[in-house]
Nucleic acid binder design. Structure first.
Lengths: 203, 203
DNA sequence: AAAAATCTGGTGCTTCCGACCCATGGAGGC
DNA sequence: GCCTCCATGGGTCGGAAGCACCAGATTTTT
């Protein structure tokens, strides 16, 4: 019997999955969490064999929670952002599995069994090649920490050089330099496109 | 017994919901669809009492499917975009119910019962007031057809005045005029912010 | 220890964008 | 008929953004 914990901010998905996974013979849902913080709290109370974590959650991202958690059960990251960039970030955050939300449920169950057995499970079902060429360029998507920070701000609507510089405590020129290298890496040419990409990549 | 059809592109949500709703005594899941087109096809085969439709789906948007369907069962729109603009569009597309994906499952069941009984059901649980003031401004979010068209392009990464003008077959000056009025209505000041808003609003 | 990458900042230049002014023709409401 | 809104287009102008190239300090990697 594999004991799992589910972290997703959408009640409909969470409650639905709880029910559906509970119907699988060798899987038992120990509990659920609706945010990264919530997940961390729950892991103090229960110790599941596997945790399923959504990337996009309020309060704290699923990936952020994984990064902060030491000595936690193997984690399977589930997201609607089917992008190699998010996959990279998930792996970097210590995930052993990566699945799209469009993955059929049996596949999730299989991933959980694999994770519980100490194996990895990366979903290769969805097609990453059609709209991801620029990002797939070797090393291209490797945004630095500062670049990600800036891009995240951009994705939340902070668009002017001035504001960005203020929030990051750096000069406007440095903002422009970071932006230029972001444009280069994401294969875009202005802030609007960069913001669209950033959101699409789930930042 | 209320017979429902579920349209959502995420297998995990769809299969989970199917299972969970099937466990509700007075609800029976007749079938599922994974896109707007799929939904239209399924409605040729079965005639549920209520349909649950996700907004964001590949191939064809849930709202587009609703607009094209004549003589269909009452529809409950479910989305992760908790915004009055999306709500407006859902109502305009003929939805009788509107729910966030963060809504608890019993509430979805209640909405389905209400819809089957010929009543409406608008979710008022989530907080629209904290980050939506500008858009809530009376009439402010009332983008015109052309403005929406332009904004959609912007949200897909078409950012330069030149490209926008080409794709819409209008002069660059008209593009700028439309943009200016979009900025006004969305309370933003440049394309990057407009793009972020557009995506957040689910365009 | 050496090399590479990152973060920080600079100059100069050109292009683009956003703000504000306006006008015309058509569709729809009163 | 009149008035408002919408879509289309024009012009100007200051400031912002993007581009190219450069460079020192620190960190990370090799």
């Amino acid at each position: 019997m594999i004991r799992v914990l589910i972290a997703d901010d959408h009640d409909l998905l969470r409650e639905g999955l709880e029910q559906a996974l509970g119907a699988v013979p060798d899987i038992q849902v120990l509990g659920t969490a609706s945010s990264g913080k919530d997940l961390m709290d729950r892991l103090e109370e229960v110790t599941p064999d596997v945790i399923m974590v959504d990337v996009d959650m309020p309060e704290m991202t699923g990936l952020d929670a994984l990064r902060q958690l030491k000595d936690r059960p193997p984690a399977i990251v589930v997201t609607m952002h089917e992008s190699p960039v998010v996959l990279d970030q998930a792996v970097e955050a210590g995930a052993v599995g990566f699945l799209s939300k469009s993955t059929p449920l049996p596949r999730l169950a299989a991933a959980m069994r694999a994770a519980a057995a100490g194996e990895g499970f990366i979903d290769a079902d969805y097609d990453l090649t059609d709209h991801m060429e620029p990002v797939l360029d070797p090393g291209a998507a490797a945004l630095t920490a500062r670049e990600r920070e800036l891009l995240s701000l951009l994705a939340t609507g902070v668009s002017s050089t001035h504001e960005l510089a203020d929030k990051l405590f750096i000069s406007q020129k440095t903002v422009k330099n970071h932006l230029a290298s972001i444009y280069d890496k994401l294969a875009v040419s202005d802030r609007a496109q960069a913001a669209v990409e950033a959101i699409r990549l789930g930042l």
